[in-house]
Design a protein around this nucleic acid. Structure first.
Lengths: 175, 175
DNA sequence: GGAGTCATGTAAGTTGTTACATGATTCT
DNA sequence: AGAATCATGTAACAACTTACATGACTCC
């Protein structure tokens, strides 16, 4: 599945929740999918224009505001996209790339790298914690969305555990 | 830090271990850094050509074979690159993007997604397990390299735990 | 001699980011 | 009225992938 199709998926998915402006699509992707997905600003408007030309979305007036709404054809397209096989982007972990060559970098600077990483992971963990305190629900959509949060929480926890190990081992190296 | 600089880092890092051909650099990045870093084929040779023009690497003959070796200037450059601040690429998890819209996709297909993901993670976990059984060492470089393996193992484990949770919750949804 | 791997590169096309440009609406 | 945010787009650039092209060497 091409990357363009994945942008289509993210945009159509956002509009499948409710009609909204391009600006709001951008905000929804950043704020709601942001922990596991990203679309840059310059991708979203051209995608909306193309989806409109393809009849997958249409411009509507909701009260005083303009918005894009998904059409039946768009919803069909969304389901197709969800079923297509996909490639995950190749891994690129800049922290591990540096740590792998840690002997060139030196003990102190490696510890600084690890402490910076810890700060970032702790911020992410705090963001997840703020979202976790909601009551159970029987809404299936909500259940799926919570699973993506659970993923984020588990990964943040595993990273913190690893950082504990890594800082201890690096600190114990003879300088 | 620009992406080009990160390619330089990966290539210089590989050559900092020992001199090798461009072909071997490619294999080393794929096989040794592959769990957390990726450079596509078309990036490596142009980078080597540029690094040679900059005096960071030089072509040498080792026995009957040709190879690239890092120069003193290249090693200095590598240390600079390791110290530069870096951006991590934006997150893009194609599985979570689909699962987030799981209500559109349906229970059975979501379970299929999760089972496919489990297969991939189990393969990764098996690859880590095969590398984990080596005796302790006092070599600092080896210690750093093992930390990157430990990261991979911990993340694979956390993903499997999450998959257990996710499959159970999705299976329990009323269809 | 043929298959497979080692080896080096180029070119075309795709994708993605960033900065710029512009104007409307809403809040204080 | 001025500031902030909402809103829509474009253009230039940077990065990345993939397919193609070529040839040497080695093992069977």
């Amino acid at each position: 599945m091409s990357r363009a199709a994945q942008t289509d998926l993210a945009v159509l998915g956002a509009l499948s929740i409710e009609p909204m402006s391009g600006y709001a699509v951008r905000a929804a992707i950043r704020d709601t999918l942001g922990h596991f997905w990203h679309e840059s600003f310059g991708q979203i408007y051209p995608t909306l224009t193309r989806l409109e030309a393809e009849g997958a979305v249409t411009r509507v007036e909701t009260g005083a505001r303009k918005a894009f709404a998904i059409t039946d054809r768009g919803r069909t397209r969304l389901r197709e996209l969800l079923r297509e096989p996909f490639d995950s982007p190749p891994p690129r972990n800049a922290l591990l790339l540096r740590l792998f060559f840690g002997a060139e970098l030196g003990q102190e600077e490696c510890l600084a790298l690890l402490r910076d990483a810890r700060t970032r992971v702790e911020e992410a963990a705090a963001a997840y914690a703020g979202l976790a305190e909601e009551p159970p629900t029987s809404d299936a959509g909500e259940t799926y969305r919570r699973l993506t949060l659970s993923y984020g929480r588990r990964m943040a926890r595993a990273q913190l555990d690893w950082l504990d190990e890594a800082e201890a081992i690096v600190a114990a190296l003879c300088p």
